[in-house]
């Protein structure tokens, strides 16, 4: 009886439900009109790929063995991933790679503060600004290739600078323990300007009056930064760091062009591992399982970023 009651309770108020839905639409027609095109567009195009990927992850599809019968094999792909040494290794490498973002943010903010400090004293600051932001514009695939050229034994620039300083035998790209550091350095080179670009523009827009007051009070540079600049610029720094973090999941081209994940899997971060599963070994289903796990990971991360930023969001209401 009870169960039926609950069911009936669920079924009973369709009129109420549609009424609330109607009033919801009536109250919210403006935001719905503004936002729904984006939501529908994104849904339309990502829904099919996501369902398809999840479905594939439970099967045993190989791109190269389509003559074989396709079966559902449950969670086998997932358990294989979680127990694989290579996958653990890739996850650790990914964390190392992501930690480089902290350095990028610190350097980028420092650079922006430095440039901002001298803006009115140095002529042609605009030229410096453009020159400093150039690394962002280098196509990632090209920058990977370019750095391979720079690190090249005998003919590379780095090799020659190294031998000038007496350090010629640093195996930047040839040592599986050092290669990740090289990858992080290249990443810092390419993305610090990105943080700088955004933060500098933000600093330029800060009001001038507090600084004048601080100058009159004789506050030190550090104090001015700590108690004036940093609090005022925090939202833009957060935005820059967050954008960088989000974009970092797309990192693949540079590493692929530079090392293909080697030597000895030394620079194999998760996207490279995923690419290899999909297109070097053609294990479509296993690759799909990795993609799903990355997706879950991203959603968790997205939620925690959400909590981190919820203050800001609420402030805006």
């Amino acid at each position: 009886m009870k169960m039926i009651k609950i069911k009936a309770g669920e079924l009973a108020p369709p009129s109420i439900k549609s009424k609330t839905a109607n009033s919801f639409i009536r109250n919210n027609w403006r935001p719905i009109a503004l936002i729904s095109p984006t939501i529908i567009y994104l849904m339309l195009i990502t829904l099919f790929p996501i369902i398809n990927t999840v479905d594939l992850s439970f099967q045993n599809v190989y791109l190269t063995q389509q003559f074989k019968p396709i079966e559902y094999i449950g969670l086998k792909n997932y358990s294989e991933f979680l127990s694989s040494r290579e996958a653990h290794d890739a996850m650790i490498k990914t964390l190392i790679y992501l930690s480089g973002i902290i350095i990028q943010v610190i350097l980028g903010v420092a650079l922006a503060v430095l440039m901002n400090h001298y803006t009115s004293h140095i002529k042609g600051i605009g030229v410096y600004r453009v020159l400093l932001s150039l690394p962002i514009f280098v196509t990632p695939f090209v920058s990977g290739i370019l750095w391979r050229y720079m690190f090249g034994y005998e003919f590379g620039l780095i090799y020659h600078i190294g031998s000038f300083l007496g350090l010629e035998n640093i195996l930047w790209l040839q040592s599986s323990s050092l290669v990740m550091l090289t990858v992080v350095i290249v990443d810092i080179w390419q993305w610090t300007p990105f943080i700088f670009f955004i933060v500098y523009a933000g600093l330029q827009g800060l009001p001038k009056e507090p600084y004048e007051a601080a100058y009159v009070d004789g506050a030190s540079h550090w104090k001015t930064f700590r108690y004036l600049t940093l609090p005022m610029a925090l939202p833009i720094i957060t935005l820059a760091a967050m954008l960088r973090f989000i974009l970092s999941f797309q990192a693949f081209d540079t590493i692929w062009a530079m090392t293909q994940g080697g030597p000895a899997n030394g620079s194999q971060i998760l996207p490279v591992y995923l690419f290899k599963a999909a297109f070097s070994t053609f294990n479509t289903s296993y690759a799909s399982a990795i993609a799903v796990l990355i997706l879950v990971f991203i959603i968790i991360i997205g939620q925690s970023i959400g909590k981190l930023l919820s203050k800001e969001v609420n402030r805006q209401g």
Binding site: I35, T38, I39, L42, T46, F48, P49, I50, N52, T53, I246, L247, F249, Q250, F252, L270, P271, L274, F275, A278, T284, A287, I290, A291, I294, L295, I298, I299, I301, G302, Q303, I305, G306, V313
Partner: peptide, 19 residues
């Protein structure tokens, strides 16, 4: 909704390319 949109941005293109 905002975070759902955000998570799409984080999707690695490799994960979506076949689909």
């Amino acid at each position: 909704l905002l975070f759902w949109i955000l998570s799409i941005q984080m999707l690695p293109p490799i994960a979506a390319v076949i689909a």
